[in-house]
Design a binder for these strands. Sequence first.
RNA 1: CGGGGUGUAGCGCAGUCCGGUUAGCGCACCUGCUUUGGGAGCAGGGGGUCGAAGGUUCGAAUCCUUUCACCCCGACCA
Length: 491
Amino acid sequence: MSKGVTPKSQDFAKWYTDVVTKAELADYGPVKGTMVIRPYGFSIWEAIKEQFDRRFKETGHVNAYFPLFIPKSFLSREAEHVKGFAKECAVVTHHRLMANPDGNGLVVDPDSKLEEEVIVRPTSETVIWAMYKKWIQSYRDLPLLINQWVNVVRWEMRTRLFLRTTEFLWQEGHTAHATPGEAEEEARKILEIYREVVEEVMAVPVIMGKKTNAEKFAGAVHTYCIEAMMGDKRALQSGTSHNLGQNFAKAFDVTFQTEDNKLEYVYATSWGVSTRLVGALVMVHGDNKGLRLPPNVAPHQVVVIPIGKSSEDIGKVLDYLDSSISALREKEVRIHIDDRTTVSTGFKFHDWELKGVPLRIEVGSRDIQSNSVVLARRDTGEKYQISKDKLQGEVERVLKDIQNSLFRQAKSFREANTYTAETYDEFKEIIKNKGGFVKCGWDGDPETEAAIKGETKATIRCIPFDEEPGGLTCIYSGKPAKHEVIFAKAY
RNA sequence: CGGGGUGUAGCGCAGUCCGGUUAGCGCACCUGCUUUGGGAGCAGGGGGUCGAAGGUUCGAAUCCUUUCACCCCGACCA
């Protein structure tokens, strides 16, 4: 393995891949487009997952598991939905292999062809609604608030680790409600959970808003989203929450009896965040040394590096720090001791910087003599010595500070790269040469949206909740703006 | 699926145009000694069906034919 990563400014895509692979977050799987999430990357995902899971449960949701395989016919029940996913479905057509009659290897046994082919779930609305039909009869069965943490498969042409892979991990929530108002409230409530975790835990600032009809989920009435700006100024959709109205209830004939004994279709939502968020974390916070992890998701918040290479040297340092480390662990600080004797101290510094550990404690004989320790912050690179007695308080303070500072840095970056445009020429100039988000008016016409996409590759990322369309004109048509929107090139 | 590119040790590459002993370099790996506060040094060592198949030739990583895989750029997407 070569030293260092490709500089961010030189080639962002290469930089990203370097960081992901060299920091041991993920590796390529043997089947094209698949990804192995390595232990270090997976523990970041687990940390993110726990934060979401806790909040889903606090708001009354329960976890369940629905099957990987879905009858092919289910997908076509909802007209829009099938259009959205048919092109990227993995299909199981046979259930058996046999020895190749021509010699070596295995071939599909033609006699094992399935009566009805099954697809591998690209998302689970259809199986889930087939089951909800069985489980929902009365308003007393509602709301039904189920989530699942699973893998899904979308056969993508072009893939990138975490950002778009053929198989990925996510959570998908599927809820059923008695009224349109409750479904709408649910979709919004979940979006707020998404915002909270992504901003406060991952330190990634997001814009909350609504998708245009062209960009919304296939089968949804409304799609809400959180959009974040990556380090190359492109947008990444980081979570979506859909109000499905009665579309799936009608497609799967899921009705309930109301209090006054009428039969009505139920109202639905679905919502998801995926391992793509790990990619966002890398692209928002990473620098030329590698990852920079916010303490709230870092598998190791603090790494202790004893200076010296022999077991004796390291032993002395660990004795010296023993009570301090215990005290920090008492406070639930995730602290890792790098006691490897096989690599040099300098190597360890670079290694943990690459892996993004927020805070490093360096201790050698000089520190022991002066009853102190050296702290090094990953976010700023700042390195300073403090008395050992102050260690616990300082660690807790600095970890909080790093969490906030990463968020602030990301937010100023986004603000510095968000523009308003008055004319379409100006708009094209920004999209083409500067990159970033452009906030401007849109006349609400899908043809305008399509034309801009065709000419500039920029898409409407969302109509922000806090839009102020009053007085704006459409950047393309010059008509009065129906909405103020965010345009950007997206992942 | 269109355009471009690359396949040689775990990783990164040279060698290919112009065929010729035993296929080479850096990193990584193993052993030993010396080092140890920012990717250690020296010495020794292990590791390859040169992507695959066929052909030309006394002789092929190198030339010819076929084929496969992967990467990058476009149309679709969490």
